[in-house]
């Protein structure tokens, strides 16, 4: 860092400090600040209640992933930085799938499923590493307030419905692959192993997989957002939020995206063994 950078950063910090000092007066009292914490905007259509914020943000994530895909559509022989990062990521994942999945016929399809899930979950978690558009609802689900840069971006992975959809998708895919690989009779017999008394345990164990799979990601991302909100209020929004967003968004977000897709690979491969 040279002298010019130091002066530049000092000015930025001074401006930040003055802005923070002025805004101190406008910080709401505790009961007002936490009254809408966790309340979501809910819309009822045809008996189905859903959160439109999740849908809107899912479309944003989807567009970002498509944009990344389009920008590396033409592969060069000598890769540039973006292409080499993507190639490294895909290569690592493919190797991981190859090492885990025992049946070579299903390596490619498992890789496609795991990589798609990883891309979506990772981009979504990265969106959760900075403040964004926040829709606040009241107890009956009515939209009361749209905040811009007031709280952590309500990403799709901070909504259990998205995670449960992916977990159920992996659950169905793993059993479909198992039936295709082993045949229906062998698959059915697998439920009664090592002996028929274990059938209820196997059944509960299988049904518990999508629950633990989805709740782990939901807990980490939604919990991180709530902790950021609470801790930020405690320090009167002074400096700490940046580190919290860095930790819960970038670090925990990346680890959880990796864990979610590795678990998807592990569940699929467990059915194929």
């Amino acid at each position: 860092m040279n002298k010019r950078d130091k002066i530049f950063l000092s000015i930025i910090f001074a401006v930040y400090f003055i802005a923070w000092f002025i805004s101190l007066k406008h910080i709401p009292p505790m009961d007002e600040a936490f009254s809408t914490l966790g309340h979501r905007w809910v819309v009822n259509i045809g008996g189905f209640a859903f959160n439109p914020a999740t849908l809107i943000n899912a479309v944003i994530v989807f567009l970002i992933v498509v944009w990344i895909a389009l920008s590396v559509r033409e592969m060069k022989l000598v890769p540039d930085r973006k292409q080499s990062i993507i190639e490294w990521l895909f290569d690592t994942f493919y190797e991981m799938v190859e090492d885990t999945v025992p049946d070579p016929r299903f390596v490619r399809s498992t890789f496609v499923v795991a990589m798609t899930i990883f891309m979506f979950v990772w981009v979504s978690n990265m969106l959760g590493s900075f403040p964004g558009i926040v829709f606040t609802g009241w107890e009956n689900g009515k939209l009361t307030e749209i905040g811009i840069f007031t709280d952590t971006w309500q990403v799709p992975t901070a909504d259990l419905n998205t995670n449960l959809t992916y977990a159920l998708l992996v659950f169905v895919i793993s059993h479909a692959f198992a039936i295709k690989a082993k045949g229906f009779k062998t698959w059915l017999k697998g439920w009664f192993e090592p002996n028929p008394i274990m059938m209820p345990m196997n059944l509960i164990g299988e049904l518990a997989k999508p629950i633990s799979h989805s709740l782990r990601l939901f807990g980490n991302i939604a919990g991180g957002a709530i902790l950021t909100y609470i801790f930020s209020y405690m320090v009167k929004y002074f400096l700490l939020p940046i580190f919290l967003w860095g930790f819960f968004g970038l670090f925990v977000g990346t680890i959880q995206a990796l864990v979610f897709s590795i678990l998807a690979i592990a569940y699929i491969s467990a059915q194929l063994t």
Partner: peptide, 13 residues
């Protein structure tokens, strides 16, 4: 997570 999810699913069923 596995232990908790198993207990929850079994309890619900």
């Amino acid at each position: 997570a596995t232990v908790i999810a198993n207990i929850a699913v079994a309890g619900f069923i």
